[in-house]
């Protein structure tokens, strides 16, 4: 506009246009400012991260496939306080294992992320190697069906990209994905209440 101005300095028309432009610009600035101000007032209190409510989860297996990362940010966690330390673990072994050994044909975990450590006769401790876990939830399903439910899925925040819109949340059939404050980033099962 200013270009034309230099060439035809006497035009009133151009002044009106630039006046209108300034007005609209200020209005737009005000609009954007108020929208973002309003949204900021809601958001500044909390930083939110995605998390999975283990009580809603139905172990459909989509966590393993829908995360934007190749190896899902959803991992299995073990609440040891709830574990029975069984030898025949429903989360570790396939439903009818041939032997209670660590042979791959007997194990439920497809990536060998779930390992067991001998504690004392006849108890075993079950540990998860998070770098191998793909969040498929097979062990969670087994543990909930035959055991105490001490194994469950959680979004692991050292891996999670905290996407704008969690890709798993979109496809979760049980609506189990929620946004939680970053300082309370986990929804761990809290053991058996007396």
């Amino acid at each position: 506009m200013e270009n034309t101005n230099t060439q035809n300095p006497e035009k009133k028309d151009i002044n009106r246009r630039s006046f209108l432009q300034t007005g609209i610009r200020l209005a737009a600035l005000l609009a954007v400012g108020s929208v973002s101000g309003y949204l900021l007032s809601k958001s500044l209190n909390d930083d939110l991260v995605w998390q999975l409510d283990p009580n809603k989860c139905v172990q459909c297996g989509r966590c393993a496939t829908s995360c934007v990362l190749k190896l899902s940010a959803v991992k299995c966690v073990h609440v040891y306080k709830m574990c029975g330390y069984c030898n025949l673990c429903g989360g570790y072994f396939v439903p009818q294992p041939k032997q209670l050994t660590t042979g791959a044909e007997n194990l439920l975990c497809p990536t060998k992320a779930l390992k067991r450590v001998y504690v004392e006769e006849p108890y075993y401790k079950y540990e998860i190697d998070q770098s191998l876990c793909n969040g498929c939830g097979k062990c969670v399903k087994g543990c909930s069906a035959f055991g105490n439910g001490s194994l469950h899925l959680q979004v692991s925040h050292d891996v999670c990209q905290n996407c704008n819109q969690c890709a798993i949340a979109v496809v979760c059939p049980a609506d189990a994905f929620v946004q939680v404050p970053a300082n309370k980033a986990y929804l761990l099962k809290d053991g058996w209440k007396a």
Partner: peptide, 30 residues
């Protein structure tokens, strides 16, 4: 409120560990 398999009372002095989680990277990332 009851587990199917109650937690054993260990004789070898084994202590039940807490569940380890890693806290988010924090907002500096944003």
């Amino acid at each position: 409120a009851q587990p199917r398999f109650p937690q054993p009372e260990f004789e070898s002095g084994y202590v039940t560990p807490d569940t380890q989680v890693v806290m988010p990277k924090g907002i500096w990332f944003d």
